[in-house]
Simulated scan of single mutants.
Amino acid sequence: MAQLGRPRSFDRAQAIDDAMLLFWKYGYDATSLSRLKEAIGGGITAPSFYAAFGSKQGLFKEVVERYMETHGRVNDPLFDENLTPKEAIATSLKRSARMQCDDHLPKGCMVALGTIGAYADDPSVPLPLRQARARTRKGILARVTQGIERGELPETTDASALASVFEGFLLGISPMARDGVQLSVIELAIDQLMGLWKVQSACLERE
């Protein structure tokens, strides 16, 4: 009779959550295997880690999936057709800012910061976060394009350029949050940023 292996001595879902906080706070490269093993289940062995996740990269992929299913859903308004294009972008930006400044979470956005410095060692590591950023980029562009199609923005609006402005601000929230910029300041900045939509609309009315 074959001998059964020892059961894992940790909750796998909780382990992914614990690892997510580490990758989020320190980034991929700075989150060492020893740090991960120490945090998971109160401390696990290397064989247990590899049996559960295969590799650090494998765990990171699962972490990104969990992040996008939870905290990453702050960008869901981009895909909510009950919101106007402008409301969708503004709501997404403000929800993201609140999450990134939450004192109960690591500051900033893991999608924006999680793989800084990881490109040189293994180009495949940043792929899950590149895919997550691409989804958000596509959502912002779709809402700007929709604004043009609905007549909220002039037909001459460069959709890609305006969408890049909003995406650039979204990515820029992370260093501001980590540097301690107050949420109220970031929210006021978002209001100022969304004024671009108003300016574009005013140009349309003058035409």
Rank of each mutant, 00 (worst) to 15 (best):
R8A: 15
R8C: 07
S9R: 15
S9T: 14
F10Q: 09
F10A: 12
F10M: 05
D11H: 15
R12T: 14
R12Y: 07
R12D: 06
R12P: 09
A13C: 02
A13D: 08
A13V: 06
Q14C: 12
Q14S: 13
Q14N: 12
Q14G: 15
A15T: 07
A15K: 01
A15L: 05
I16E: 00
I16D: 05
I16T: 05
D17S: 15
D17E: 15
D17V: 12
D17H: 13
D17C: 08
D18N: 14
D18T: 15
A19H: 00
A19P: 03
M20H: 02
M20A: 10
M20D: 03
M20Q: 08
M20G: 01
M20R: 11
L21Y: 06
L21G: 07
L21V: 14
L21E: 12
L22Y: 13
L22M: 14
L22D: 08
L22H: 10
L22A: 12
L22E: 11
F23P: 06
W24M: 04
W24P: 04
W24G: 02
K25A: 15
Y26F: 15
Y26C: 11
G27D: 11
G27M: 04
G27A: 09
G27K: 13
Y28C: 10
Y28V: 04
Y28N: 08
Y28D: 05
D29W: 08
D29M: 14
D29G: 08
A30P: 00
A30K: 15
A30T: 07
A30V: 03
T31N: 02
T31A: 01
S32C: 02
S32V: 06
S32P: 05
S32Q: 07
L33D: 04
L33Y: 08
S34A: 02
S34D: 11
S34L: 09
S34F: 03
R35W: 03
R35C: 05
R35V: 08
R35Y: 03
R35F: 07
R35H: 06
R35L: 12
L36V: 04
L36Q: 05
L36E: 02
L36C: 00
L36D: 02
L36Y: 02
L36T: 05
K37P: 01
K37E: 09
K37M: 09
K37H: 07
K37S: 04
K37C: 06
K37R: 11
K37I: 04
E38C: 04
E38G: 09
E38K: 14
E38H: 11
A39F: 11
A39T: 13
I40K: 05
I40P: 00
I40L: 01
I40D: 00
G41W: 08
G41N: 10
G41A: 10
G41P: 01
G41V: 04
G42D: 08
G42Q: 13
G42M: 07
G42P: 04
G42E: 06
G42W: 13
G42V: 11
G43H: 06
G43M: 01
G43Q: 04
G43D: 09
I44A: 03
T45E: 05
T45M: 07
T45K: 02
